[in-house]
Design a binder for these strands. Structure first.
Lengths: 196, 196, 196, 196
DNA sequence: TCATAAGCGAGACGGTACGTCGTGTCTTACG
DNA sequence: CGTAAGACACGACGTACCGTCTCGCTTATGA
């Protein structure tokens, strides 16, 4: 019933990918603590031992499912103009995070438990986006749209950060208008400030 | 041992406040799922029935403790200048959210469970901050610092939203410098744009 | 609704009698451990404190209700013939125990708990019957129906004991035929043995 | 520490037998309502789930422990003479019931609760003894000691019934002399009547 | 006639056991 | 050998009940 589609470029075997897909689906349906490992095993017609052999805790299973679910999401828009790049990026983030808000909330619980999860979150989720944004900004600097000083080490993530905040912590999923306003009224003024 | 301090203006009785305080402390010490209702009852020398009579599930208990813990945190700085108001507000938010990141993560799980939690989160947590920020902006409009159009219905929460994102979703708790940069390089340019 | 009838010669006040009557009824309806003191209080529109003021534990309440319920049951038949006395007594016991089997079972639990309950059971329940039976036998000796040696200190209670056993431990409540057979085929042969 | 002895011919697995043995011991030590399922689980190093998987309530657990405890007690004396058979049987019953009086009282409470317990009591406890006694009487008929009519459907259980009554409902545990008197002065006269 | 006290109904409370359920480990049997 | 099936120990959850306690209200008495 459940084929191993979408497993390309995955570090997981087809069977493992199937388990993660089942996990992800149940996660989105029921939330983190209504998800039971027994349910995953039953749905995938797998033994609990099979699951626990690969992911020693429920937390790691859920985290792996989350990472696998978001692995393909970061694509560089590269439209040729900073504003358009930011708009496209914002739309992508908003769309993706909107469907995975529940999963992200689930993963956050694990971050409180061990710093290790925080580090994994950093590496496997945020760093991808950081590199992408800095690539966009670097191109804008090269085109002379903004000053090089606008690329900071600290505040690179206001765009994704705010959008994620909106989806995950409040119910108000960001609309297209939200993304436009954010780019035009908040981000662009700060980035182009001083570059006339 | 534990007096009923800080219960002013609370919807809870002193005894209930005490239970919530115990819950909050154990929550910060052990995290959400290492917190047991039995431990709360034992620490507060209360019966489990007493706790469950008010908050029918562990989730609601934790949520109430979180709301009670953040109820006193929203204070209006009112320094007389918009930039200083934003800086002080940002510092307050960063400090408070920094200590309660784990609790917020715990509460978020419940948001996935029922829309009711989302609504409670909205009313009891976010609306407080929204009113506060719009008060600050209204004063700035009155002083002529910014245009009235800068007060939007949608993007009022970039400051708290980003700071909360930083503490809760990434490990990088915002520093003083982060708050300063955020206010000076992101928020103020957008707010004062066109009102030179 | 519930008047204080049947409280004559009772050591209890009318109100107390009412509480015991409610207890007895609920006891017969639901059995010992499905009976809750709260239910007694609610049914009698009384406060739990009122109940506990008189009977410090549920066990004592139930025991008092049992004793009150069986207080009027021991009546001397005195028909003029041993066999008829025994038959009538057996019928009485069978009828009374048949309706109170559940209550007796309930009281038995308390006997296991403290020897005090055993003693109270002895005094307030069994001794009454012992005196009655020995009165019957003494009359039979006086009439020359049986030898004086037939009155023993140990085995006086075969008639009530077996009938109680039948009702309380097995489901087979003794019928009229059972009582007749018991008197004619078991008791009378043993009593009249040797007295031709 | 606790081997699986005495589990022969048992409907229970060795592990289940162990659980019942622990239950029976704790039952005799503390009585029914001072016995906790948690204590059984802890003593047997078992999970509560393991216990509840087999016996859905504490009552059923205790009943099963009682039945298992009395399963081996019914042995046919077969001495060759009716009087000796009855004496030996009476002694056995008196000894066994004497040690298990508290357990029987505990089990009786459950009989009031559901008719199902009454049926189980009948099948698993009383029917064993009935078959045994009728075997004894049948042999006596074959030997010509008593008339065939002495075997009745109704009153077969005077011997065990009275002895159980003595142990369970009164404090007066039957002595050897009690058993002798019961056999010689009550049972034998009734059984041998007319077969002189 | 009014005040002060004693008893009662109502019900919250601390404690504790019950019965349920989920995690992570382990064993058995199959392919 | 790896896997499906599922029993198991551990422990938390949420419920129910016992016996204690406080709070008002009513009633019964003394100035």
């Amino acid at each position: 019933m459940r084929s191993a589609d979408g497993c390309t470029d995955s570090p997981w075997s087809p069977r493992e990918c199937e388990l993660l897909a089942v996990t992800l689906q149940l996660l989105q349906e029921h939330g983190y603590d209504r998800l039971t490992v027994d349910a995953v095993a039953a749905t995938a017609r797998a033994s609990k031992a099979t699951i626990y052999r690969r992911w020693p805790t429920k937390a790691e299973l859920v985290f792996a499912a989350f990472v696998e679910g978001t692995r393909q999401a970061a694509v560089d828009p590269d439209t040729g103009a900073l504003r358009d790049d930011l708009l496209r990026l914002g739309e992508n983030i908003a769309a993706h995070v909107g469907t995975h808000a529940g999963t992200i909330r689930a993963v956050l619980v694990e971050m409180s438990r061990s710093a290790e999860f925080g580090a994994m979150m950093q590496e496997q989720f945020l760093d991808q986006r950081k590199a992408l944004i800095q690539r966009i900004l670097t191109r804008a600097v090269a085109r002379g749209e903004i000053a090089a000083a606008a690329i900071t080490e600290d505040l690179w993530d206001v765009l994704p950060g705010y959008l994620i905040f909106r989806s995950v912590l409040t119910g108000r999923s960001p609309s297209h208008q939200t993304v436009h306003d954010l780019v035009d009224n908040v981000l662009m003024p700060g980035l182009t400030r001083g570059s006339t």
